[in-house]
């Protein structure tokens, strides 16, 4: 089936078998290997992406179901000139990852949480990220990173004029 979807703002046309999951389509047909596949049956959360702004397990959706949708993957987080998103910076700074396998899903889940609940407390962050399994970190660093990113995202953006003064 021919489908058309917007991936990280770029219109993409691909031809997929109906049984192709969205995760496999992103990785194999779009060449975006940032979305990781852990369990492939909806338990681990590694393949979490945003579909029309809402988080979804990309292994539990067929690509044909995303026809006409807008999908955001971890590759969509970086800025136009390649700089890391504040969440990614915070994961680096606060040991939010070790092997990095779960990180794309963690980042997308955290991104959605901070979009919908910018003031989420530590308990809420833990609750939200409970759908993403990490076998390295013990989660402390991940929760620390999301809290740090909250602070970074809440800071007012300084304009060049202001910083000159």
């Amino acid at each position: 089936m021919n489908i058309s979807l917007s991936v990280n703002g770029e219109r993409t046309q691909i031809d997929v078998e109906p049984r192709r999951t969205l995760a496999d389509a992103l990785r194999e047909d779009c060449g975006l290997t940032g979305t990781h596949l852990g369990c492939e049956h909806g338990v681990c959360g590694a393949c979490t992406v945003l579909v029309d702004g809402e988080p979804a397990r990309a292994c539990l959706m067929f690509a044909v179901q995303a026809d006409g949708s807008s999908v955001t993957t971890v590759e969509g987080l970086e800025g136009t000139d390649g700089e890391l998103h504040p969440l990614q910076e915070a994961f680096v700074a606060h040991h939010g990852l070790q092997c990095g396998f779960c990180t794309p899903g963690m980042l997308i889940s955290a991104l959605h949480l901070l979009d919908t609940e910018p003031d989420a407390d530590r308990d809420k962050i833990r609750e939200e990220l409970s759908g993403n399994i990490c076998r390295c970190t013990g989660y402390q660093g991940i929760v620390d990173a999301v809290q740090a990113a909250q602070g970074a995202l809440a800071e007012p953006v300084t304009t060049p004029e202001a910083s000159d003064e």
Partner: peptide
């Protein structure tokens, strides 16, 4: 029910 990514679908 489940997690956010489950509830959204």
């Amino acid at each position: 029910i489940g997690h956010t990514a489950i509830r959204s679908r």
